[in-house]
């Protein structure tokens, strides 16, 4: 029966594993801390997960297509800093500054994809380059100094609620739904997975590989851009040093959610669960006042556990 489940639908199985793991974490922390299951804390977990969550969703597309995007945190910092700059120093309307910054995030992603296409170099290398370029752009825009104190109307809107949800959570949910539709319901999503699965077959069968790759990286850039906006809204600042190392956390969440690091298999739901696992772990350990030394240890142990899971997964 188990073997049958295994062979019938891998994705569902991985999602079930991830859910089980999340439930176990949740059960443990709700027993250990009375605050864990409170509405406010759930809200905290979700808001704290929004930045990494959006970056991870963008990364899901790139990983599905067989690439890797290391530039996401750099692009995130660039977009947040740029938007803060436009709002505070430039006096732009948020209706202009937000789409502009997110658009430039998309442009960063587009450039990465374009360069991967023309150089045929591994996206690992190209995006590593873009990581530095975007980070540098953030430094240049801000002259290396955080831009603090955004216009009141922007902050009160960004830190307030909409439809009963925190704005970052709302943006995260919209991002999840759009990504889910793109990946599972459209030809582009299917082509992304096929490209990551067997690039030769994709090309031989007329899948426009270059265009698909371009779209995945552009999407990742846009998602990083929105993540940057959330970072900016939450911290009330454009910080060019924001989120160093976040790109790896985002990729970790995607893999934890059952995606194949070498492409061809990835789900949005899995990624979201992966983000939640990491977020719940961090939040729970904070609630229990576990010291930083042991927090780092636990996060490491969870990743090793995830590696074991993926080993079981590959033994089909």
């Amino acid at each position: 029966m188990f073997a049958r489940l295994f062979t019938q639908n891998q994705n569902r199985l991985y999602i079930a594993q991830c859910l089980l793991f999340l439930a176990a974490l949740g059960a443990f922390f709700s027993l250990a801390s009375p605050y864990f299951l409170s509405l406010g804390n759930v809200n905290n977990v979700l808001t704290a997960g929004a930045v990494i969550g959006l970056m991870a969703i963008g990364a899901t597309f790139v990983i599905a297509s067989g690439g890797i995007d290391l530039s996401s945190a750099g692009v995130m910092a660039f977009c947040g800093t740029l938007c803060a700059f436009c709002l505070q120093k430039g006096g732009w309307s948020p209706w202009l500054a937000l789409p502009f910054s997110i658009g430039l995030g998309g442009l960063c992603g587009f450039l990465t994809g374009f360069l991967v296409n023309i150089t045929e170099a591994p996206s690992f290398i190209v995006s590593l380059g873009m990581m530095s370029v975007a980070r540098a752009a953030a430094y240049i825009v801000s002259k290396g100094m955080p831009i603090y104190g955004l216009p009141d109307n922007v902050i009160s809107a960004g830190q307030g609620q909409m439809l009963g949800l925190q704005v970052p959570v709302l943006l995260l949910i919209v991002g999840i739904v759009l990504a889910w539709i793109l990946l599972t319901q459209t030809q582009f999503g299917l082509h992304t997975l096929i490209l990551g699965d067997n690039a030769f077959a994709a090309q031989a069968m007329g899948v426009p590989a270059g265009r698909v790759r371009l779209k995945t990286f552009t999407l990742a850039g846009i998602y990083s851009g929105v993540a940057g906006i959330i970072f900016m809204l939450r911290t009330n600042s454009g910080d060019p040093t924001a989120g160093q190392g976040y790109e790896l956390i985002a990729i970790t969440a995607v893999i934890l959610g059952g995606a194949n690091l070498f492409g061809g298999r990835a789900t949005i739901i899995g990624t979201v669960l992966g983000v939640l696992c990491l977020g719940v772990l961090q939040n729970g350990l904070n609630l229990l006042a576990v010291s930083t030394y042991y927090q780092t240890l636990f996060v490491g142990l969870v990743l090793i556990a995830a590696a074991f899971l993926s080993r079981v997964r590959s033994q089909r």
Binding site: N44, A48, V51, T235, A242, N283, N286
Partner: peptide, 19 residues
């Protein structure tokens, strides 16, 4: 707790502690 000099990490730690 250590927030590794990071603004958002410090924010998350504070939010969790206030909880």
């Amino acid at each position: 707790l250590s927030a590794e000099w990071d603004r958002l990490r410090a924010m998350n730690i504070t939010a969790d502690t206030l909880m």
